Amino acid sequence: MRQAVTTLTVPTRGAGLVEVTAQIRRWVAEQGMETGLLTVLCRHTSASLTIQENADPDVQADLLRFFRRLVAEDPSLYAHTTEGPDDMPAHIRSALTGVSLSIPVMAGEPALGTWQGVYLFEHRARPHRREIALHLIGE
């Protein structure tokens, strides 16, 4: 068994989904492992990760609208308000969607389905630079 680790830096434009599938696929291919397990971790508490359809951009727009309706940006609802009205809702959205993924690696690449992509889900209103840690174990 071998292991490899790296960190991706992902700039965001504010709230929304940023696809990182290509960067992940490229890094996994560079490791030369045929089979294994890839762990993907978002190193933040106000952004998250998700695997979603990557063929129709309406999916990402609908997800963003849904989460805005589900978790209100109303400071009167929260005690944690010092970082702005979008901060606590961002933490809640991150808790609902999760910050890590486990993806099998088969035939040297992440075993994603035909229409699946890996996305960083930015939950804050303003742009950020987010870090995603990758850990691959395999052979």
Rank of each mutant, 00 (worst) to 15 (best):
M1V: 09
M1T: 10
R2P: 03
Q3T: 03
Q3H: 02
A4L: 03
V5Y: 01
V5T: 11
T7Q: 14
L8M: 10
T9S: 15
T9D: 13
T9C: 13
V10L: 11
T12L: 10
T12R: 09
T12Y: 12
A15Q: 14
A15H: 10
G16S: 11
L17H: 07
V18C: 09
E19Y: 03
V20M: 08
V20S: 05
A22Q: 12
A22K: 02
I24A: 05
R25M: 04
R25H: 06
R25Y: 02
R26C: 10
A29D: 11
E30R: 08
E30D: 12
E30S: 12
M33G: 11
E34K: 14
T35W: 13
G36T: 07
L38M: 05
T39V: 09
V40Q: 10
C42G: 13
R43G: 14
R43P: 10
R43M: 15
R43E: 15
T45V: 14
S46Y: 13
S46P: 11
A47N: 13
T50N: 11
I51C: 02
Q52M: 07
Q52L: 03
E53H: 00
D56V: 00
D56M: 00
D56L: 07
D58Q: 09
Q60I: 07
D62C: 06
L63G: 01
R65G: 08
F66T: 12
F66K: 10
F67Y: 15
F67A: 11
L70Y: 08
V71M: 13
A72F: 11
D74A: 04
P75N: 03
P75M: 00
L77R: 15
Y78I: 14
H80W: 06
H80Q: 09
T81K: 06
T82P: 02
E83L: 10
E83T: 02
G84Q: 03
G84F: 04
P85N: 04
D87L: 04
M88L: 14
A90F: 11
H91D: 09
I92Y: 08
R93K: 15
S94I: 03
T97K: 11
G98A: 11
G98L: 06
V99T: 14
S100P: 01
L101M: 09
L101E: 08
S102W: 02
S102K: 07
V105M: 05
V105R: 01
M106T: 13
M106P: 00
A107W: 07
G108P: 07
E109N: 02
E109S: 10
E109R: 11
P110Y: 03
P110G: 04
A111S: 08
A111F: 08
A111E: 05
L112V: 00
L112Q: 04
L112A: 05
G113T: 05
T114L: 02
T114H: 00
T114P: 00
Q116E: 06
G117N: 02
V118D: 01
L120D: 05
E122Y: 13
R124A: 06
A125W: 00
R126L: 03
H128S: 13
R130D: 07
I132Q: 02
I132S: 03
A133I: 05
A133D: 12
L134I: 08
L136C: 04
G138V: 03
E139P: 06
E139T: 13
